Amino acid sequence: MKRHPGISSRRLGTAGRVVIMCLSLGPLLAHAQRAPGGGYDRPQGGGGPSVSIPLQWLFNRPEGGSEARPKPPDPRPKPDAESLLKYGPQFPVSLSAGSFTVEGFMQGGWPFVIDVAPRPDSCTWLALSAGEKTYPSIMLDADGRAGRHVIKVPLPDEIGPSPQPGQYAVYSVQRACTSAAGGDRQTARPFSPIAIYGIGGGPRAVGSVAVNNLQFGPSAPRFPQESASIGYSTIRDFGRGTEEILRFEVTAPDQVSVQLVGATPHDPLQKGTHSGSWDGKDGGGARVPGVYRLQVRVWDTLNDEKSWAGAISPDSVHIVKQ
C-alpha cells in the first residue's frame, strides 16, 4: 500500500489481522469473481479457518428461519488484555445476518458508538459481556426507519471502573422493538440483515466514529496505469492504527470469503486527514480478480485509556479478470 510523502509506513505481518464486515453485501456479489477459497491470516500461532460466510447468513432469512442469537459460536479463545493491546480489537471470523461481535476493552460509563444502517421494521440491540458476566442489553434502534445513522450510548456502570476485555454483540431482529428494555429476554425472532460501517468504544472513540469519511476508489482503476486512492479522517490521536485492504470472493453458490490482502500500520496514527494509494496487488505481488474494500482500525495502549474503533469504506474497488 503506497503512501504519500510524510506518512511513514511499514508492512504488517500476519499478527493482529482482523475484519470489520459490512453485512449488506448485495452490490459486492454482482462483481465478485469465482476463485479458490481464501481467508485472512490469523495472529501467529492462532491457527483456525479462513473466513467463509454463507450468503443465507448475509441476506433475508425466510420467516421461521434460524432465530437470532446475539453471541454466535467462535472457535477462537477470547483475547486477553495483552492481545488486545498488541493487535487491537478483534472482529468475528464468521458472521450471521444481523449479528456482529467485537472483542475489545470496555468500562462502566464508557461511551459506545456505531455507524449503522438497520433494515426498516427491525429491532437492534447491543448485548455486553466480560468474562463470565453478562450485562443489561441496550436498545440501539427501535424500528430501522432512520436508515444509516450514528448511535451513541453509555455502557452500564455495572461493568466496573477500569477497562477490561469484553464482548460487544450487536444484533438486529425482524419486527420493530416492543420494549426499550430486556432485549435478551424478548421472544426470539429471525435475524434482520444490518450494515455496520463503523464501531468503537471508549472516550476517544466517539464524536461521530473516531475513524470516518472512508474513501476508496475509483470503482474500477486501470491497473497498473492507475492506482486506487485511499482517504479517511481521524478525530483523535491514537497510539496505534492500521489501514487494511479486504478482498471479497464468491467461493460457492452460497458462500462469500473475506481475505486481508494488505496492511499498513501507523504507530501512532495522528488526528487529521490521511491519504494514500493502492496498486491493486496483494501480499504476494499479484492482482487477483475480486471486490476490495478499505478498513481502518485504531486503538490505544495506555494504562488508563484503551479506547478502540474501526471503520470500513462504503465504496469498493473491483479488479476484473483480463
Rank of each mutant, 00 (worst) to 15 (best):
G47Y: 01
F105M: 01
Q215A: 15
D80P: 06
D267N: 12
D184P: 03
G131L: 04
P268A: 09
L12W: 02
K86M: 08
D184F: 10
V153M: 11
P75S: 08
A181L: 11
I312H: 07
P218S: 05
A195S: 11
S94R: 15
R293S: 07
G88E: 03
F105I: 03
S316N: 14
T101I: 12
P224A: 08
V288H: 02
Q167E: 14
Q33M: 15
P193N: 02
Q322C: 03
G47P: 01
K133N: 08
F100Y: 15
P190V: 11
S162P: 06
Q186E: 10
R17W: 00
Y292P: 05
G48F: 07
T178D: 07
V116C: 00
G207K: 13
P253E: 07
Q164P: 06
F105R: 02
Q270V: 04
A286L: 08
F248G: 01
Y232Q: 06
S9Y: 02
P27N: 14
L294N: 10
G108P: 11
W278Y: 02
K2R: 07
Q33C: 15
L28M: 07
S83W: 09
I159D: 00
D121K: 12
G183Y: 01
S275L: 03
S96L: 06
A188M: 05
D300T: 01
P253F: 04
L23E: 13
K78V: 06
V298Q: 04
K78Y: 04
P289F: 05
A181T: 15
P154Q: 12
E243F: 01
P43V: 01
S129G: 15
T134S: 12
P156S: 13
A97T: 10
L29G: 10
G290R: 04
V93C: 04
Q174I: 08
Q270P: 00
L12P: 00
T124Y: 03
R293H: 05
G45T: 00
I194E: 02
D315V: 04
D74P: 08
G98C: 11
T234R: 08
R175S: 09
S52N: 13
L23Q: 12
F238S: 03
Q164H: 12
Q322V: 06
Q164T: 13
V317M: 13
G104T: 09
A210D: 02
L12C: 03
S99M: 09
I230S: 02
L28T: 07
P161L: 04
P265I: 12
D254I: 04
G276D: 01
S227T: 13
F216W: 15
M1Q: 01
P77C: 05
V173C: 09
S137I: 09
A309M: 08
Q167T: 15
Q167C: 07
G144Y: 04
Q270G: 01
G285N: 00
Y135C: 03
G290Y: 03
G26F: 14
R240T: 06
G239I: 04
